[in-house]
Design a protein around this nucleic acid. Structure first.
Lengths: 251, 251
DNA sequence: AAGTGGTCTAGACCACGGC
DNA sequence: CCGTGGTCTAGACCACTTT
């Protein structure tokens, strides 16, 4: 039991416990399952809530809890390109276009919360899916975080895996801005798509669990091969800006 | 007390209770606040968790709970255009471009889970923010759900509010596909933006809590005025597809 | 050491679905 | 009616931050 919180380990125990079930099968009732796992029902429920939120389980009051159909649109999570492609049933690949180390400069320094004189590694990669060009990714990382990083390290590999395995850095949270754009001539050439054709522009900054800024990534994705799908959640009532205004009042 | 769940009313009471606070101010400790509101601490915590998830509060173990800076990036929730614009600090508006009722036809019938012969209301609206064109929205609703809907009903109003107030329909969940696109000549004219300039294409289907399909909406947003911001959450460990694979095992 | 939020417990009752 | 998940309670202890 290396997890600090019991409900996390309970979550994993539940996953083991239901590994042999088919989609649509019912789980044991909460009371029995809690008993079986030796935890309070509230603790089990916390684990089940997380699994339901992740889309693994469907819960219905009065009926029971069931193994859900695996979801495809678990999008906009903090996944790497590689993981994202695998979820879409494609084989991810990578070809490094350029790599250099230089001082951050004003604007990049600000984004990475570094001194403008700090050294930053900039890697430009063509990302492929099933061998076809999918995106151009420009990665910026503080040089001190990734000593001895070489271009071949990144060929065909997941940067996030490399961070964990070699530099013991793991990314915990991120902030991403998404805009529509069109391909310029150079991007179009790399991506083997028409110039001016629609594309996504993603700008992501990622932090470690300690809050340290680890990367700034700018990615351009072909609009004809890549799209986002999201499940929209229940409208959070008035919420959000509690500025004196009236809350919703029911008659 | 018209809310069925106590934690919902507690949530609203907390919002009232903190309405006069400035950003960064501390809330009373959970124990006192629970006492004051006459509920168990667990119930109060459920309300506080929701408010923290919505971005209204920041909570820090050992320090306290604080009124958060209003967030801009609460994106990709199931909000209406009107609500979305308000959150961005803009004044939403609407001008109905066209409205007609016709039979669904094959493809639209499929999307709306209707017979191809079923009657569907199609409304095209120009959506504005601070008076400037922001998006073109094409809404499709089964006609039987919205008897006597007229074009003026929708001028300047939120369709979702109208659904609730007049038709007693409320939207619970949705599925949205997001693609980059470019404006065609007609869209460009309505949106007062250059032809071929980047734009977002959203296609959304929404359901009531009973699972009934209520609407299919196709929206084109100006890429120079609208962008998405998302907070990326921790990578859900192996999860999601519980197909016999090993869960993460720590030594 | 004191005070905060975070977790966990054991049990009660409620709301809903199916028999 | 019974069994299910959903809510709520009162209290305990833990982990973290500040004094």
């Amino acid at each position: 039991m290396t997890q600090p919180n019991k409900y996390e380990s309970v979550r994993d125990q539940v996953l083991d416990r239901i590994a042999h079930l088919e989609v649509g099968d019912a789980l044991p009732p909460e009371r029995s399952l809690a008993d079986e796992l030796g935890v309070a029902r509230m603790t089990l429920r916390r684990a089940l809530e997380e699994l339901a939120r992740e889309g693994v389980l469907d819960r219905h009051q009065g009926r029971g809890t069931f193994l859900a159909q695996p979801k495809i649109s678990q999008q906009l999570e903090m996944t790497s390109f590689s993981e994202d492609m695998r979820r879409r049933g494609l084989v991810p690949g990578s070809r490094t276009l350029s790599m250099q180390t230089a001082s951050a400069g004003a604007s990049l320094g600000q984004r990475l919360e570094l001194s403008p004189r700090a050294s930053v590694v900039r890697v430009r990669r063509l990302r492929t899916a099933d061998g076809e060009p999918m995106a151009i990714e420009t990665l910026h990382v503080p040089a001190e975080l990734v000593p001895d990083l070489s271009a071949t390290d990144l060929d065909g590999a997941s940067f996030y895996d490399l961070l964990v395995e070699r530099y013991e850095l793991s990314i915990a949270t991120g902030h991403q801005v998404i805009e529509p754009t069109v391909l310029n001539a150079e991007e179009a050439e790399h991506l083997q798509a028409p110039e001016h054709s629609p594309a996504f522009l993603f700008e992501r900054t990622s932090r470690s669990s300690e809050g340290r800024l680890i990367e700034f990534v700018r990615s351009v994705y072909r609009g004809d091969r890549y799209r986002l799908e999201v499940e929209l959640h229940p409208p959070r009532r008035s919420a959000a800006i509690p500025s004196g205004g009236r809350r919703d009042e029911r008659p």
